[in-house]
């Protein structure tokens, strides 16, 4: 991009000469645009043309607290971080987990939910007997996690697994099950659900809360969770608001609002409404 930047620089010099130059300070935030996928129930989804979900209610609450006017833009998950970095949106609230890899390019707020990730399968399929059912495996403790993953490998060998493109689940398969399973990447999780129920793939890896909710839909009646739940490591610290690294002030505003929402029980009500349990995370002031 050097040549492009040099053109921009030349334009900038002219701009400065004309007296239009300004320092690129962070602006005073009065309104922000939030990017979300809009097809990841119960986190965010569209119903009758209206956006709903835990993140929509949460955004409304924290924006009120931070005195921000917030609007949503719906777009595919794999384009959210590029869209944030090019300035199409100011924040991401889309069940996006704060991982070390993503933290290289964007900043994250306090996490607001950690349900973990797990396998989704079809009832009666060969993977129903996947070991460690319901057990929580923390990938931060990689040594003991690897032992268990070895056992999973035997059960998963040669299977086809669907994940959302650019998701933590795609990174997980790439890191731990490469060469063992055949990976298919989808734009939207609803698309891998369709393929799971059509029998094109043997399993999906997705958010635990997502699979529980998806299984309630008429088309996914035979969907079940299977195997262990994973947290930590490539899965990161749980869903957080994604922000540009340069927007330090905005991050401070939103963190404060999130903590206030956790503290006075508003978040408890929202999470009970969408997840069916109190998902209020551990938080630091």
């Amino acid at each position: 991009m050097t040549s492009f930047n040099s053109i921009i620089a030349a334009v900038a010099v002219v701009g400065l000469l004309l007296g239009h130059g300004a320092n690129a300070q962070e602006k005073q935030w009065t309104k922000i645009t939030i990017g979300t996928e809009g097809s990841f129930a119960p986190w965010n989804y569209e119903e009758g043309g209206k956006l709903k979900g835990l993140e929509i209610d949460l955004a409304e609450d924290i924006c009120r607290r931070a005195k921000l006017e917030c609007s949503f833009i719906v777009q595919d998950f794999d384009g959210l971080i590029p869209a944030l970095n090019v300035g199409k949106i100011d924040a991401v609230m889309s069940g996006m987990s704060a991982t070390a890899k993503r933290a290289e390019v964007i900043a994250f707020s306090q996490p607001y939910a950690t349900g973990g990730q797990t396998f989704g399968i079809q009832k009666g399929g060969p993977l129903e007997a996947l070991p460690f059912k319901g057990e929580l495996i923390n990938l931060n403790d990689e040594a003991s996690a690897l032992d268990k993953i070895e056992k999973l490998k035997a059960a998963l060998k040669g299977k086809t697994i669907g994940v959302q493109a650019a998701s933590i689940n795609a990174s997980f398969l790439d890191r731990y099950l490469k060469g063992i399973v055949d990976v298919r990447e989808y734009k939207a999780t609803t698309q891998h659900d369709l393929d799971l129920s059509a029998g094109r793939i043997d399993a999906i890896v997705a958010s635990y809360n997502y699979i529980l909710d998806a299984a309630k839909k008429p088309g996914n009646r035979d969907m079940l969770t299977a195997g262990p739940r994973f947290i930590g490591g490539v899965f990161g610290n749980g869903s957080s608001i994604g922000l540009r690294k340069s927007d330090v002030k905005l991050k401070a505003m939103l963190d404060e609002a999130l903590i206030a929402s956790f503290a006075d029980g508003t978040y408890k009500n929202i999470s009970e409404k969408y997840f069916g349990y109190d998902a209020t995370p551990q938080y630091k002031r």
């Binding site: 921009i8 701009g15 239009h20 090019v86 300035g87 100011d90």
Partner: peptide, 22 residues
């Protein structure tokens, strides 16, 4: 979709517009 904003934003910044142009 992606390139358009990047271009406008860099241009806008240089001319003193604060923040990003979506």
């Amino acid at each position: 979709y992606f390139g358009g904003s990047a271009l406008l934003t860099s241009a806008g910044r240089m001319f003193g517009a604060d923040g990003f142009v979506g």
